[in-house]
Amino acid sequence: MATPTIETPRSGRVSPGYSRTPGSRGNFEMIAWLFMRISGAILVVLIFVHLYVNLVAGDGITGIDFGFVAGKWASPFWQIWDLTMLWLAMLHGTNGIRVIINDYAEKNSTRMWLKGVLYTSTVVIVVLGTLVIFTFDPCPVIDGVAHVADYCPAP
């Protein structure tokens, strides 16, 4: 068995795994930290009002159906509300997972792959969600046939 060499103490060497890569400055981490605090506080209001309006107010949980959602999204107020909630929640969550990946991924390649999956899914969900909020049509016309519900204006 080879005798491991033990270097003299205080030789100034730092185990390679511990040396920091320079040039990692910039304010990104600070902005991310600040964003988490601000978006968190806003999301508390957005989400609890959302839950109250959907589940408690009016008919409560029994009142939720396609028509309820359609009615809400007919108003620009709820469109903006839901849009803000979607964006803030997605970015807040993504940043949280990004931080966890940074903390727990041991290999750079694992880290890159996990973050790749994370960012792709975030973009897909945010784009899709935004599209749905703004292009939602409660009374669609499919193949020339108007699917008219009782809340739709007569064609």
């Binding site: 990692s24 400055r25 304010n27 990104f28 981490e29 600070m30 991310a32």
Partner: peptide, 12 residues
């Protein structure tokens, strides 16, 4: 403060 505003600084 600039040193600790690092990726591996206080924000971790």
């Amino acid at each position: 403060l600039e040193i600790l505003n690092d990726k591996e600084g206080v924000w971790r």
